[in-house]
Design a protein around this nucleic acid. Structure first.
Length: 300
DNA sequence: CAAAGTTCCTGCGAGC
DNA sequence: TGCTCGCAGGAACTTT
């Protein structure tokens, strides 16, 4: 579920549910996700109060009162589900939590619920991730600047990014612009879906070489200016759409953002192009092992 | 067969 | 010609 807008939506939801609360216990139901859980991960979080939640690229950074940072990446299929203290006391729970409360012999199945966070107010949050591409880490705030996962990241699209910065990076790039958009050193937060959407909106072919969007003098072409604008627009719209679905916050299921949203080009192979005045048909190609959806008629 | 992400490895081309 | 370096592309991780 996770590109920047979805992570932002989940972050907002978690902030509402978590900030100010104190962790009573963290229960791990297996030893690893993508990587092994850090040593003493659960022990170190126990007793910590959540003070703030930030986002960097597709990572959530959860701050605690003792200057610890709990990093959470949702991978492809990670989700958090939140149960209020009232739901817990009313047994309005998912099976994995029932299993952990009532014991393993109840027949409840929680096979993909790998991490359970219990707060001192009685509420419980569960991290579910079937494919286990998610990442969880814990470090001190002072170590954040040398955290390898964060160190390699490029600019945030809304804060530090413009078409000249994009042009500087595209200049000597030999890869297609679609591949470049997915490169988290170029700009963070854009994933496969929004890369396709932004290129379609900008009218740029995904196979166009990144270097062809820069002039000889190193300036962004009009097309690159447009692309940078469209990336920001498409991400912003998706954040707004995600936020509007988070009214009452029974759960923080990340697929909120994706499933309530319809895409203009992504996943629409063989269907008509939806761009006004375009009579083209959406095609699917594969670039760097990822599907690209595009309209050869209006993307040049 | 395909899937929303990231890291790591291999292989190729450029340049010395 | 041959070697090293860096980049680009593909595989791998896993389950539904």
């Amino acid at each position: 579920m996770p590109e920047l807008p979805e992570v932002e939506t989940v972050k907002t939801g978690l902030a509402k549910a978590w900030i100010g609360k104190t962790i009573a216990q963290v229960i791990l139901r297996r030893e690893n996700l993508r990587y092994p859980f850090p040593k003493r991960f659960a022990e170190q979080l126990q007793g910590q109060t959540i003070t703030n939640i930030r986002r960097r690229a597709k990572y959530m950074l959860i701050d605690t009162n003792d200057e610890l940072v709990f990093l959470s990446h949702l991978g492809m299929s990670g989700k958090y589900t939140i149960f209020s203290a009232e739901q817990v006391s009313n047994y309005d729970l998912k099976n994995s939590v029932k299993q952990s409360i009532f014991g393993a012999k109840t027949g409840f199945d929680g096979r993909h619920d790998h991490m359970e966070i219990r707060f001192t107010d009685g509420s419980i949050s569960v991290y579910t991730d079937p494919r286990r591409f998610g990442i969880v880490k814990l470090f001190h705030r002072a170590e954040e600047t040398v955290e390898p996962l964060l160190e390699v990241l490029g600019p945030e699209p809304f804060d530090d990014w413009n078409s000249q910065i994009a042009a500087d990076r595209c200049r000597n790039k030999r890869s297609p612009i679609k591949t470049t958009l997915l490169d988290q050193r170029f700009v963070v937060g854009v994933g496969n879906i929004y890369a396709c959407e932004a290129l379609h909106n900008a009218g740029i072919s995904p196979t166009k070489l990144a270097s062809s969007l820069v002039t000889k003098g190193g300036k962004p072409t009009k097309a690159l200016n447009k692309l940078v604008d469209e990336v920001k627009i498409v991400l912003n719209k998706a954040i707004a759409a995600g936020g509007s679905t988070l009214n009452d916050f029974a759960d923080v299921e990340g697929n909120l953002g994706y499933f309530s949203h319809h895409f203009t080009i992504y996943g629409r192979e063989d269907q008509p192009c939806l761009k006004a005045g375009c009579a083209g048909t959406v095609e699917r190609i594969v670039q760097s092992n990822r599907s690209t959806f595009w309209c050869p008629r209006c993307q040049k």
